[in-house]
Each structure stands twice: as C-alpha cells, then as structure tokens.
Computed example of a mutant assay.
Amino acid sequence: MQTSPLPDAPARQTAREELKTIALRQFASVGFAGTSLQQIADAAGYSKSSVLYHFASKEALLEATLTPAMDTLGEILDRFVARAPSRSSQDAFVVEFIDFLLANRLQVHMFVNQGQSLQGMAVIQRANGLIETLAQSLCGEMRTAEERVRFSVALGGAAYMLSAAEMWSTTPLSDDETRAALVTVVSELLAPMQLRPVAS
C-alpha cells in the first residue's frame, strides 16, 4: 500500500526575519522608546547578544522593520507617475495605496502615531520625504484649501483609521470589508479632484 507524501511544513522564518516581526509588534504596541532590545530578545526567545548579532542597535532594527514598506510606497508612487493622468489611473492608485496600508498596518501605525517622536531618524526622514513626494506627485500645487483638505483627509485619514481602528470598535471589520469601504470612501473624497502626477 502506497502512502501519499506528507505536505511540506511551512518554512520557519529566519532569525533575522523573526526578530523584525517581533520588534515591529513591540514597537507598535509599547512604543519605540518603551521597547528595549532585551524585551525583543525575550519575546523572540533569543539572547540579547543574538539580537545584536543581527542588528547593531535598536535604531537599526527599526530601520529594517520600516524600510521594506518605504520601498513599496516608493514603487507605488513611481507607477502612478509613469501613468498618463486619468480617472482610471487615479482609481488604480487608490486601490494600490489602500492595499499598501492594509499590508503594512503596523508600519503605518508606527509612522502615524510615533513619527513625531522619532524625527531625526533616517527611516522616518525617508518616510516624511515619501509623504511629501506623494503630495507633490499626486496633486502638484493644490490650488484651493478644499483640495488640500480633501487630499489630506482621504489619504491621511485612511492611514489613521487603520492605525487606530481597534480603539473605536469592539466589532472590527474584516479586511475585505475594510478594503472595500476604504476604496469607496477615498475614491469619493478624491473624485472632485483630478490628481495630477508630476515627475518627482
């Protein structure tokens, strides 16, 4: 009697990736300032020296946790700028941006809720630069106060909503419900504007 092979077990994260995942959770829940390398090591089941083997400092660990999200946001902006200005390119950007926020909730949480206290760190300066590029690339010189508010509430509000949603409701929405609602609402807020991508 022939037996079927056992399915492959899911690959365990490398120590470096596991430390990044745990550190991001700690930074987001306790705060960067309130998290020590020892706490990260304890939560991961490693020694502090093992953490320092992979990351020279807590700042280097923060940079490693946020940089992939910054890279992704940069790619989304590059794609938008490369498209001809149109309602369909604007709609495609909104979907990509919402998917980015959903896939990077903890990173967005860090930037939205702790960005001010982390000013001066290279990865936060890069994030600020991308947000500035986002505003310039999407809207150029916004002509009216209404355009500025509409743009800020649509994109900044979506980011804040995801980073603080658990504080507002005891019955959170599923990711699918959240995605559909955010795409609809952000698209409606931006609809009166024609986003004007310009080369950054």
Rank of each mutant, 00 (worst) to 15 (best):
F97L: 14
G31L: 05
T14D: 06
F27E: 05
S169T: 08
I40S: 01
A56E: 12
M167S: 15
V153P: 02
C139W: 12
D71Q: 01
E147L: 09
G115Q: 05
G140E: 06
E141G: 05
T171W: 10
A69R: 04
H109R: 05
S47P: 01
E146K: 09
S169G: 12
H54C: 05
A191H: 13
L118R: 09
V149W: 15
I40M: 03
T14H: 03
R12C: 07
A165I: 15
V198G: 13
L52D: 00
Y46D: 05
H109S: 11
S57D: 12
R126D: 06
M167C: 07
G31I: 02
F55M: 11
V81T: 08
A165R: 07
S152N: 15
D8K: 08
S86W: 02
R105L: 11
R16M: 15
F32D: 02
A103F: 09
A103C: 15
M142C: 10
A191D: 08
P192E: 08
M121L: 11
E63Q: 05
L77D: 05
G120I: 03
T133D: 12
V198M: 09
Y46I: 00
V198Y: 09
E17S: 13
G74P: 00
R79N: 04
L24V: 04
H109V: 15
F97M: 04
S57C: 03
F100S: 05
A23I: 01
M167I: 10
A41R: 01
A199R: 15
A180N: 11
S174F: 09
S49A: 06
Q2M: 11
L195P: 11
S36P: 04
R12N: 15
P192Y: 08
D8S: 14
W168K: 14
R196E: 03
E132D: 10
S163Q: 13
A69T: 14
A158P: 06
I98T: 00
P5E: 14
G140W: 00
D176P: 08
V186D: 08
L155Q: 11
T144R: 07
A23H: 00
V112K: 13
A135G: 10
R87L: 10
T65I: 10
A33N: 15
Q116W: 14
I22H: 03
T184N: 15
T65L: 02
T178H: 07
A159G: 15
L6T: 15
V185N: 13
F151I: 10
A158V: 10
F32V: 01
